[in-house]
Computed example of a mutant assay.
Amino acid sequence: MKNNETLITAEGLEELKNELEDLKLVKRKEISEKIKVALAFGDISENAEYDEAKNEQANVEARIAKLEQMIKSAKVIKATKQKGIVSIGSKVQIKDLEFDETMEYTIVGSAEADPFKGKISNVSPLGKALLEKKIGDIIEVASPAGDMIKYEILTV
């Protein structure tokens, strides 16, 4: 992988494009209106609404620039055809052997990782440990506290 490439699934790329479109077409207009309203209050040197709107505008423009760069450098990844082997794009069901808890994750590029949606990055400790493993393998991953957690791969 080249340093400037953004590894992403086709679904993740579509989400980025939708977010970019929303920011450009909707959010920019909303912020423009907020700035107009704030300017109507008069003196901008002590105008909190104006300052807040300008800060929001700067944040949105920064996010737009970041999204455009990510989309430009996107390399769409596909799950490998090797059945039962974990790769980027794979949906994996694992079992925490200590707590007998089952979890399901999709391994994605870091640009679209969202643990709350069950998407973990291929460069995260768990993601790295899962890559190239197969059903039945036991992996160990260091927790943030430093303890080693054992997982068994149930399905890929």
Rank of each mutant, 00 (worst) to 15 (best):
Q57M: 09
A62I: 09
L16V: 08
K17P: 00
K78M: 11
R63N: 04
K91M: 07
K78A: 01
V26M: 10
M70N: 08
L16G: 06
V86E: 03
A79Y: 01
A79I: 01
E68W: 15
E30I: 12
V76Q: 12
A65L: 11
G84H: 10
A40N: 15
A48P: 11
E46F: 02
A58V: 12
L16Q: 15
G84Y: 05
G42T: 13
L20N: 01
K36T: 15
L20E: 09
D43N: 14
A58E: 13
A79F: 00
E68I: 07
V60C: 15
N55C: 07
K83V: 10
Q57R: 14
A79P: 00
E61L: 09
V86W: 06
S87L: 10
E19S: 11
K83C: 01
G42M: 14
I85R: 08
K36S: 06
K27C: 01
E46C: 04
I31D: 02
I35S: 06
E52F: 13
K36M: 05
E21Q: 11
V26L: 07
K29T: 13
A62V: 06
K72Y: 08
A53W: 14
I88K: 09
G84Q: 02
K66F: 12
E68A: 03
V60K: 01
K72H: 00
K72C: 07
E21V: 08
D22N: 08
R28I: 04
E46V: 13
I31Y: 01
K72G: 05
A53D: 06
V86C: 06
L25F: 00
G84K: 12
A40I: 05
Q57Y: 15
K75V: 10
I44K: 05
S87Y: 13
K29W: 02
